[in-house]
Design a protein around this nucleic acid. Structure first.
Lengths: 125, 125
DNA sequence: CCAGAATTGATACTTGATTATCATATTAAG
DNA sequence: CTTAATATGATAATCAAGTATCAATTCTGG
């Protein structure tokens, strides 16, 4: 059975406290402020464990590495900024999404991703 | 300036006639029924040209290679079947998608993808 | 038809994300 | 504490998608 280590505790805390989904590298850099010698492999191993346990959820967006967020968050979608390449959480969903499926198709999951420029990047430009 | 070749003509025709977005390999295998010695590199080069010209549009879905479809199709979204791993076109969109963006965010594009089992795979199971 | 410009196809290479390896270090149970 | 089980970290290996290379072939304008 898995051991509880300082690395995993710090990694889990960083993910749970984040206000947006993070990439493995973002998580690694953040935790390295506390554990400077933290290695990439440890991050990937911990992420795999967390996802298997159901406490963390992968967020896959084309063209960027998989991001990870707390699985405790309620259903929501994402905004990807082309400038800063950051992934923002959106609140809520929209009605009628499942109605797009043709008859006989069983929908298990859906994703909505908006692309554009975030407020911060717009202000800078 | 680009030459018009048998390969490009056949590739464009296959993409334009397809009822769903295709991967480079799917396109290659299809056109090889007409041009058996067609190489993968040629497919990728033609796709790049078609996209640059605006006649073909890439469709990016996490976890599967980029698919391509005619840019002439009107705005629509997709259904990805976990069993046959095929990408289906859906008709239309839903109201209120852009309203998910926070104030100050400029939305340029959006994607909706449904995941599940298609009618054909459900019937087989 | 001809010559130069562009394309093709086979294959090697690149790229970026993720995984395996393995010696060393940490953890937990008794 | 002790020790067996597990984790870590540095780095090499993998893997798949896409790109570069280059000799041979195909286009196109005149």
């Amino acid at each position: 059975m898995p051991y509880t280590t300082q690395q995993k505790l710090a990694l889990a805390e960083t993910i749970m406290k984040a206000e947006r989904p993070l990439t493995p590298d973002e998580i690694c850099r953040e935790v390295q402020r506390e554990i400077p010698h933290l290695g990439r492999a440890t991050v990937y191993r911990a992420l795999k464990q967390f996802v298997a346990e159901g406490q963390v959820r992968p967020v896959e967006i084309p063209g960027v590495p998989t991001h990870y967020e707390s699985a405790a968050r309620q259903h929501h979608h994402f905004f990807f900024c082309h400038h800063c390449r950051r992934l923002y959480n959106l609140l809520g969903c929209v009605r009628g999404v499942l109605g797009l499926a043709p008859k006989g198709f069983a929908v298990k999951r859906h994703e909505i991703v908006l692309y554009g420029d975030c407020a911060r990047c717009r202000a800078r430009a």
